[in-house]
């Protein structure tokens, strides 16, 4: 449990392509699946809440008479997000809020728990923080090209996150998730009374609502890329590693001449 996947024991030879190794420790796995459920509920109930007023504004106020930067009122008869993607599937703002405001607690508590562990265990520092060399434009460009050609790391390199993965996870952990929680809180009239700086941070409640929606869009974009990468990298091996922790390292490629 305590062995760090990225730094193998000195005594054993380093794992190579084809070996099965521990890749994800249990807090990562628990948080991953908790989050999968929580994010699904938050997204589906959130889209229903958006359906109740499908217009977005900037600033402190914003309602039907005011100019909106996004107006989906004419889409699908005023209910832009269809039943198959909302919770519940029939129009109910009250039920969507019931789910959203309960699962928000699960989202926040699980996120704090994970971050606490990731800091204490140095998971953040060792596995998620990009190395300076990885951020060099040449290295980034190389990784982008390799990804675009669907050539993913193999052998020992597949055991650690590549820099694009680190940047994507970093954006989720330090921008999108804190952003979506704080903008959500900034929409609460009670929280705004106690913490006026929070609503100022986002330049108004309607701006916070817009940013809440944009953070959700960012998380959906992450989810789509994440699922595509799992499918392309080998869904059975990837799923197994997130369920059991164990991952079979992809064999090294024979370099083409």
């Amino acid at each position: 449990m305590d062995s760090t996947p990225a730094s193998p024991q000195h005594t054993a030879p380093p794992p190579k392509g084809g070996d099965t190794v521990l890749r994800h420790r249990w807090p990562v796995r628990i948080w991953h699946w908790t989050n999968a459920l929580v994010m699904a509920v938050m997204l589906m109930s959130g889209l229903m809440i958006f359906n109740a007023h499908p217009r977005l504004y900037w600033g402190h106020y914003g309602a039907n008479p005011d100019p909106a930067w996004l107006d989906l009122e004419k889409v699908n008869g005023g209910i832009p997000f269809p039943g198959w993607i909302t919770l519940p599937s029939h129009y109910s703002l009250a039920d969507a809020r019931l789910w959203h405001l309960a699962f928000a607690w699960a989202l926040v508590l699980a996120f704090i728990g994970y971050l606490g562990w990731a800091l204490a265990s140095e998971h953040l520092k060792r596995n998620l923080a990009p190395q300076l060399a990885e951020l060099a434009p040449r290295h980034l460009w190389h990784d982008i090209r390799e990804h675009a050609r669907l050539r993913f790391p193999t052998g020992l390199a597949a055991l650690s996150y590549n820099v694009l993965q680190k940047l994507a996870y970093g954006a989720v952990l330090f921008v999108l998730l804190p952003g979506i929680v704080l903008t959500g809180l900034a929409m609460s009239p009670a929280i705004d009374a106690g913490f006026p700086w929070l609503v100022d941070l986002f330049a108004g409640r309607q701006s916070a609502r817009s940013l809440h929606f944009l953070c959700a869009a960012g998380l959906v974009a992450f989810l789509l890329v994440h699922l595509a990468m799992v499918l392309l990298a080998g869904p059975v091996n990837e799923l197994r590693s997130m369920l059991t922790g164990y991952y079979r390292l992809p064999p090294e490629r024979e370099e083409q001449a």
Binding site: A52, H53, Y57, H60, Y61, G62, A63, L93, R97, Q206
Partner: peptide, 12 residues
């Protein structure tokens, strides 16, 4: 003050 509707809009 700001009036916040449960639907999401606000008016001052």
């Amino acid at each position: 003050t700001r009036h916040d509707c449960v639907e999401g809009w606000s008016a001052i």
